[in-house]
């Protein structure tokens, strides 16, 4: 059952990701990407990473992609935008070759040595466990994230405000 679900979600997410880069219309690409995000969320949920799964849907599929769609619609982007890059087949070939050069060894592991990990403790990845980690072991990066958000917020305001006193 688990294998079946994995193959289903995994296959679907790869297909949708391909759709996102192949489709000619920006809106279709964005919708495909949303589908990919949902499939990834499913994969995370299967790994018992409930919080990540929920955040994947809320933040990526929800907030960020909705923003993408807004931008595409507001700017009224049509097909011609990507046309220039499509006229350069050499770059496409290069991209495919380098993606393959990364992908093949990663999947086959190229005969290298690997580490065996012990199984994660039960409850790992649940909201409670992640919250606990954030407030204990990872308190410092968590606090730095607040500085990051403040800086980003202030920066966005100062760059976009129409008139500054």
């Amino acid at each position: 059952m688990e294998i079946l679900m994995f193959n289903l979600l995994g296959g679907l997410s790869v297909a949708l990701a391909l759709g996102a880069i192949i489709s000619k219309r920006p809106v279709n690409s964005a919708i495909n990407l949303i589908g990919t995000m949902f499939c990834l969320a499913g994969l995370f949920a299967m790994q018992d990473a409930h919080l990540i799964a929920a955040l994947q849907v809320l933040v990526y599929a929800g907030a960020i992609m909705a923003l993408f769609l807004f931008v595409i619609m507001l700017l009224n982007v049509r097909e011609k935008v990507g046309a220039e890059s499509r006229r350069q087949p050499y770059w496409q070939l290069l991209a495919v070759v380098s993606a393959g050069a990364l992908f093949v060894p990663l999947v086959t592991l190229g005969g290298g040595k690997i580490l065996k990990f012990k199984e994660a403790a039960s409850g790992f990845g649940t909201t409670a466990a992640v919250g606990r980690l954030l407030y204990t072991d990872y308190i410092l990066p968590f606090e730095i994230a607040s500085v990051l958000l403040l800086a980003a917020l202030v920066g966005a305001v100062i760059l976009t405000k129409t008139k500054i006193r």
């Binding site: 990364l102 190229g110 040595k113």
Partner: peptide, 14 residues
Amino acid sequence: KAAGLLTGNPMFIA
């Protein structure tokens, strides 16, 4: 420490 045990592991190198 782990790197010493991972000679030739393409994931680590990548």
